[in-house]
Computed example of a mutant assay.
Amino acid sequence: MTIHTADICDDHFDKIKVADSIFSQYGKKKAFHGPIYTVKVFEDNVLVKKALETIPEGSVLVVDGGGSRKRALMGDNLVDIAVKRKLAGIVIYGCIRDSSQVNEMEMGIFALGTNPLKSIKQGKGQENIPVQFAGVSFEPGSYLYADEDGILISENQLY
């Protein structure tokens, strides 16, 4: 079943929050939805990799990277983990790299942009906490719906 964010807005306007349109889309998968899991990091992707390896299948990983455009938090190797583990999609308040390879992969990703510089590896950050960016709060366990028209957040699963 294909779920369109425009239809969700029409049917459930009082139950959703709409994220600001600040992202670019990457990967072959243009629409995705699922329960939210979060990490909050800054130019360090150790917890991002850990989350990709451990969160449940069908989940959406939301990465609050502080909006940094100085280093990439994810490249094709980490996206490959998400594909193999059948995650629904990824939202990154930060950058990715290896975009030409990522665009050929069966994953949906929203990110601020690209940067070829890899992240640092210190393991600093927080896991599964509420994070705020793009004008909305991403609460672990809430649901995210995303497609070419944007990103929606709902406290409960709508479909």
Results as ranks from 00 to 15, higher is better:
G94Y: 05
I22M: 06
D14G: 00
D11P: 00
L61A: 10
I22G: 03
P35D: 07
G89E: 09
K17G: 00
I90H: 06
V83C: 12
I16L: 11
C95H: 05
I92V: 15
G27S: 08
D44N: 13
T54K: 09
L52D: 04
K40H: 03
R97P: 01
L73S: 05
N45I: 03
E43D: 15
L52Q: 05
V79H: 01
K40G: 07
V41T: 13
R69V: 14
I90F: 05
S68M: 11
E57W: 03
I81K: 02
E53W: 01
S68G: 07
A51N: 07
L61H: 07
D10P: 00
D11I: 11
G65I: 03
L61E: 08
S59W: 06
A82M: 06
K30A: 00
V48F: 09
D76V: 06
E53D: 14
S21R: 11
P35H: 08
D11S: 13
I90P: 04
K30M: 05
N77W: 02
S24V: 01
S21V: 00
V41P: 06
G65K: 08
G66N: 05
C9Y: 04
A72K: 04
I36Q: 02
K50E: 09
I36V: 13
T54V: 07
K49Y: 04
V62L: 09
S59P: 12
N77L: 08
G67W: 10
H33Q: 13
